[in-house]
C-alpha cells in the first residue's frame, strides 16, 4: 500500500514540475500522505479517513482532497447567492465514470491553497470552456453550435439559465448516459427548465416503458437530440419538418410521413388537445364515472338486501 502510494505520488509530481512552489507543496503533501497511509487506522475520531477505503482506483490527489471533502459535516459555502455543498460522496465519485480521474482533471483552476476559492461562475465557465473539452472535444463542439451553447454565450439575461455540461450530466456522480438509471431520469433533467413537458412524455408508451425498465424506449434526447439540440422550429433540428421522419426512422424504419404527426406532448383531458382526442377523453371520463357509480350503488344495495333478508349462506342453496 505504501509502495503504491509512493509510485502514484511520483507520477503526480511529474504533473506539477512547472512550479517550484507547487513542487515544494507536493513534496510536503506526499510525505504527509505516506505517513498517513502507513499509520494504523485511528481507533477514535468517528468518520473513517480515506485511507480506510480501497485506494487502487483513486489517485493520491483525489485522496488528499477527500481528506476534507468526504466529510458530510463539511458544510456549505455561499457562491453567487446559492448554497453549494462542499461535501463530495467518495463512493459515488469512485463509482462514477470519472472515478479514476484526479480531482484536478476537472477542477483545473484549483490552486494548492484550498482556501483560495474560485468563484462558482468562474469555475463553471472553466468547466464548460475547457475541463470537459480536454477529453470530449467533439461533444463540446456540437454543444457550442446548439441552442444551449449559443444561449450560454449570448450574454443576455437568459444566458445564466443555459445548461452547461454538468447541468445535464451531473458532476461527481457522473454516469454513462446509456444506463437505464440515467435514461429513466432524463425527463426530470430536461424538466428543470422545460417543466410540464415531462409529464406528457411519461404518459406515452415511450415514457411508460422507460419508467418500468425498458432501456431502449425513446427518451427526450432520442427525439430532440442532445449535444447539438435545437428548437423544433429550427430547420436544423432533429424534429424539423425536414428531419423528423429520419429521426422517427432510427427506431421505426417503416415510419411514414403520417407517423411523424403523432403528438407526444398533449394532455388528452385538456381543451388544448386536438378536439377529437379531447372529446374521446371526456367521453370516457363521463362513462367511467357513470358506470362505476351505478355499478357500485347497485352492488352495495344488492349486498344490503341480501344481508338484511339473510340470503347469504343459506343452507342447501334456496
Amino acid at each position: 500500500m505504501v509502495g503504491g502510494a509512493r509510485n502514484s505520488a511520483r507520477e503526480l509530481a511529474k504533473e506539477f514540475t512547472f512550479s517550484s512552489g507547487r513542487a515544494l507543496f507536493l513534496a510536503f503533501s506526499t510525505l504527509l500522505i505516506v505517513v498517513l497511509a502507513a499509520a494504523p487506522a485511528p481507533a477514535a475520531g468517528g468518520a473513517p479517513l480515506p485511507q480506510n477505503q480501497p485506494v487502487a482506483p483513486v489517485t493520491d490527489f483525489t485522496q488528499r482532497c477527500l481528506t476534507c471533502h468526504s466529510q458530510p459535516y463539511l458544510g456549505q459555502v455561499e457562491v453567487d447567492g446559492r448554497a453549494k455543498s462542499l461535501f463530495v460522496d467518495p463512493t459515488a465519485y469512485k463509482d462514477s465514470v470519472h472515478g479514476l480521474l484526479p480531482c484536478n482533471a476537472c477542477h483545473t483552476g484549483f490552486t494548492p491553497d484550498p482556501h483560495q476559492m474560485v468563484s462558482n461562475a468562474e469555475f463553471f465557465a472553466q468547466t464548460a470552456g475547457e475541463a470537459c473539452r480536454n477529453c470530449h472535444d467533439d461533444q463540446f463542439e456540437m454543444y457550442k453550435q446548439s441552442y444551449h451553447g449559443t444561449l450560454s454565450r449570448s450574454g443576455s439575461a437568459e444566458s445564466e439559465k443555459a445548461p452547461l455540461c454538468v447541468d445535464c450530466h451531473g458532476s461527481h456522480a457522473i454516469q454513462k448516459v446509456n444506463t437505464l438509471a440515467y435514461r429513466q431520469g432524463i425527463q426530470d433533467v430536461c424538466g428543470r427548465c422545460h417543466g410540464g413537458r415531462e409529464a406528457t412524455y411519461l404518459d406515452t408508451y415511450h415514457g411508460k416503458a422507460v419508467t418500468l425498465g425498458r432501456q431502449a424506449a425513446a427518451t427526450c434526447v432520442d427525439c430532440h437530440g442532445s449535444h447539438s439540440i435545437l428548437p423544433v422550429a429550427n430547420p436544423q433540428s432533429t424534429l424539423s419538418q425536414a428531419n423528423i421522419l429520419g429521426t422517427c426512422r432510427r427506431c421505426h424504419p417503416e415510419a411514414s410521413k403520417g407517423f411523424t404527426t403523432f403528438l407526444v406532448h398533449i394532455t388528452p383531458t385538456s381543451p388544448k388537445a386536438p378536439l377529437v382526442v379531447f372529446l374521446v377523453a371526456m367521453f370516457y371520463l363521463v362513462l367511467i364515472i357513470a358506470v362505476f357509480s351505478f355499478g357500485g350503488v347497485h352492488t352495495l344495495l344488492y349486498i344490503y338486501r341480501g344481508l338484511k333478508d339473510g340470503l347469504y349462506f343459506r343452507k342447501g342453496g334456496h
Binding site: H252, G258, F259, T261
Partner: peptide, 15 residues
C-alpha cells in the same frame, strides 16, 4: 403503429 399511420393521420395513434 407504422401501418396505422400509413392509413390514418398520426393523431389516430393519440386517440
Amino acid at each position: 403503429p407504422e401501418a396505422t399511420a400509413r392509413l390514418l393521420p398520426g393523431v389516430a395513434l393519440n386517440v
